[in-house]
Design a protein around this nucleic acid. Structure first.
Lengths: 341, 341
DNA sequence: ATGAAAGCGCTAACAT
DNA sequence: ATGTTAGCGCTTTCAT
């Protein structure tokens, strides 16, 4: 081993680099780069030599270096409220799969509740210079939104609608859902409504629309129970107990999540209340397992997978300079009629 | 605006860089860098000037450049089988939160089922030069494992035990769980066992140990039903129907996941089979909501949050050159006695 | 089809 | 405490 073959600068990480591969293949680094990234631009013979060198050395290109040089990170960042049995899981999975198949990677950030943390999160996201950012929900005007727009990074907001997205939007109307659910329940002859609702701005809009429709139908105001956690069966049970106690003549409950609805169902069963005869229950989200429970849950289905897949596509299109012909998409929703309503 | 103030090279991305901040603050770039990253090494007055320049420009450091220069990406990669209501969600959330609080970010990769995709995934992970890699499960010997070891990146394997981890390990024994569940059920006087099991190597080991314990107790072999998906209520229902039909004298069912157990419970209820009187049901995972269902599920609890939190800590310790005193940790498990067994 | 030069934006190493 | 220099490993640009 000659000295200048083995010597590496003190700063080097010591890993195999493109230069090593190139030397082994007897070509210049740039040719090796082309052989790896744009094989069609290189003669078959050279291609083979480079491929062999890659295989022999176990070379894995350093994407930080590549990203820095090309200003293309091949990274997409997603900001989600939570990853624990949430209605967003399907979306994340679809997003991740679609990205991976196209050679992109996913960075996951959990959106914070405090404004301070929110800004920290955004900066840490922007700092990676992702080629695109996926947001759950639409971002309210403020520092964060401004910062995001200033960054110039393609952004897709999801799971909601607004006439003024930061950039692209793939969502649906929570107001329409509230209206549709009310109409559905009204159509079933229900007359005394109750609502179980977690602190959540989007759930609020569903609830408000629901209420408005009920009022318009000339029926009494729904009895509303607020709970803390969207994803707690326990909260749903407790809320249902409250309803049964304080508004015993209720004949329909609209819950702001499937898990809350499952809790309501559980409580009803424990009190031997017949669902749906005595009281109808509806959820929101259609998480994978509520279809096969007994009774199966009537709920609002959102095609979360489609949102994720489409968002990935949009973000990559933008990143690669393609036009996105329809930057605002309403994917809608559907009411899935099952046993409980 | 003088010419050389506004001119940027053709390659520049046009974004604000450290140089811009430094010039505005009237210091050299390296001083600006220090003010931002090691504020204690800089005089208060300079610090203030730099902070102002950062605020005024909206500068967000480019972590790709920083990572390249320092060989420290502040990125941790996690490889998980799935993100949809899986038992790993709690772990991912804890991992992500712990990392974020320390200024790290999470890259999420979904492990592939084919060996080809697996290798692609590993390369795409290694290509980012993360400071650490989180793996769900232990990696079987093979190309991927070798590649991972060769990369020199700290790795933590989880959710399982092996005497020969790649690097660090935070898990528990699936064999012990099978044994413990059998013992528990035996202790309750159960004598005719059935198993509902998804294709999953770790579930297999729980099952095998369970079987062995039953055999050792001199009882007949459990009736085993194989299903495709660990996370399907439907599969659990179908499997339970099979058990009720072909092994009607079964008095206890051990399911390889809580969701399967929920399905089994549902089917039992629909056939008016009394749980646990006639047949006991146990799950695995203790996903958040099975505690509050009716009947509440007796299951095996894994402290997924602790695994995630500890894994994050270990990975960061390693990345920052600290010693990890106990690189192999058995976090154990507990059987949570509830209604169904 | 291949290569040389330059530089992406930052920080380690070595001054002062 | 602050600055200078020289890269990190790659790709763009411009030649040939």
């Amino acid at each position: 081993m000659s000295e200048n073959e083995s010597k590496r600068s003190r700063r080097s990480s010591g890993a195999i680099t493109l230069h090593d591969v190139a030397r082994l293949a007897g070509v210049s680094p740039i040719t090796a780069s082309r052989a790896i990234n744009k094989p069609e631009q290189v003669s078959p013979e050279l291609l083979k030599r480079v491929e062999e060198a890659v295989a022999r050395t176990g070379y894995v290109p350093n994407r930080m270096a590549g990203g820095l040089a090309s200003s293309r990170s091949k990274l997409i960042a997603a900001v989600v409220p939570s990853t624990v049995i949430s209605v967003f899981n399907e979306t994340i999975e679809a997003l991740n799969n679609t990205l991976f198949d196209a050679g992109y990677q996913l960075m996951l950030g959990q959106s914070a509740y405090s404004a301070d943390r929110e800004e920290l999160l955004l900066d840490s996201v922007i700092g990676r210079r992702p080629d695109g950012i996926f947001l759950t929900g639409v971002m309210q005007p403020g520092k964060g939104r401004t910062r995001l727009m200033a960054s110039g990074i393609p952004v897709v907001e999801t799971w909601d609608l607004t006439p003024t997205p930061i950039d692209m939007l793939i969502g649906f109307s929570h107001t329409d859902i509230g209206l549709a659910v009310a109409k559905y329940l009204l159509g079933k002859g229900r007359k005394q409504f109750a609502i179980i609702r977690a602190e959540d701005e989007r759930a609020d809009r569903r609830t408000l629309a629901f209420k408005a429709a009920v009022t318009e139908a000339g029926l009494p105001d729904p009895y509303v129970v607020n709970v803390g956690d969207q994803r707690s069966i326990r909260s749903g049970r407790d809320a249902m107990a409250k309803i049964l106690k304080h508004a015993p003549r209720s004949d329909a409950v609209f819950c702001s999540s499937d898990l809350l609805a499952l809790g309501a169902l559980t409580e009803a069963r424990s009190q031997k209340i017949d669902v749906p005869k005595q009281i109808a229950v509806m959820g929101f989200g259609d998480v994978p397992f509520v279809a096969d429970m007994l009774p199966s849950l009537t709920t609002v289905r959102i095609n979360g997978g489609k949102i994720g897949q489409l968002a990935a596509q949009y973000l990559m299109d933008r990143a690669e300079g393609r036009e996105v012909s329809e930057p605002i998409v309403n994917v809608g929703f559907s009411i899935i009629e099952r046993d409980t309503a």
